[in-house]
Design a protein around this nucleic acid. Structure first.
Lengths: 152, 152
DNA sequence: TTACGTGCAAATAATTTGCAGTCCC
DNA sequence: GGGACTGCAAATTATTTGCACGTAA
């Protein structure tokens, strides 16, 4: 590929972000970061991100998406979310998690802050809290039409 | 097998329990229920239960354990727990869930009731809440020795 | 009797990994 | 240059399923 096209990604602001976290800023990682954070806060799986990536000129492989998401999570750029079902979800919002999960649609969205209770639980002896995750599972109410809730 | 040994399980009190839930009380299901509930409230995976079952005289197959746990959960005898990692956990306590999850040991135990906050979140339009699950993830504190926490 | 349940082995689904080749520092 | 990263394909892990046989109602 031409030097111009090949090195364009180096101008991304995510190069610095990745480097700050001790992650080498490669083309693939920068592409993935751009995709992840381009649309504001959101919840997604590796497959979701992969299908978005495929629309790019030089999309990373699925394995690289998995590896990048794992690495990003380990370095605090995104957070893993505990959820029912087999798939691992990631959230671009890295604070404590409070979500509604609409099972029927496999859809995840935020619970508005004002409803979040104080969680003031002391960690057991010898341990520290590294994450708090709350998932409230939903089902459609009988006879009701549920509208989509992308992003909280 | 002798008629006596083969029909002994029919005397189990779980026969009625299963029937009440619309589940046909078979030898395997009764065995599984006995194992599940013999030790008070606890948290386990299909594999855990399978290895316990193998010590019995006529242990059910792994597939049957999976199927039984799924069926039991669908009928309210146990509850699935959303947790990090690939495995599905089940809890014999069927009320709302509040747990500590000690990542390093892959160990799950209850948060004492007195620390549980009021969760009073209204369900979004057209939906109803079918489950509330809270997982507080823990790591050992630097230099501390963590003791095992089987059962909360 | 007859539909439901079981057991085995094969099928799936999500994710990880080995390894040869690439690229960043 | 040398180790970190990537891509592919193969391996793993957890779980489900097809089908022949068994068993509860």
């Amino acid at each position: 590929m031409s030097a111009n096209a090949a090195t364009h990604w180096r101008k991304s602001s995510f190069c610095a972000t990745l480097r700050d976290q001790g992650l080498r800023p490669t083309r693939q990682r920068v592409q993935i970061a751009e995709l992840l954070f381009a649309k504001g806060d959101r919840h997604l799986t590796a497959e979701t991100l992969f299908s978005e990536a495929r629309e790019q000129r030089y999309p990373p492989s699925l394995a690289t998406i998995y590896n990048a998401l794992r690495d990003f999570a380990a370095h605090g750029l995104v957070r893993e979310i505990a959820l029912y079902g087999a798939k691992t979800w990631y959230d671009t919002k890295t604070g404590p998690h409070f979500h509604f999960y609409l099972e029927e649609r496999d859809e995840l969205f935020d619970i508005p802050e004002e409803f979040i209770p104080l969680m003031n639980v002391p960690a057991p002896d010898g341990t520290q809290i590294v994450g708090v995750d709350v998932v409230i599972r939903l089902a459609p109410k009988a006879g009701a039409t549920v509208k989509a809730h992308e992003q909280g």
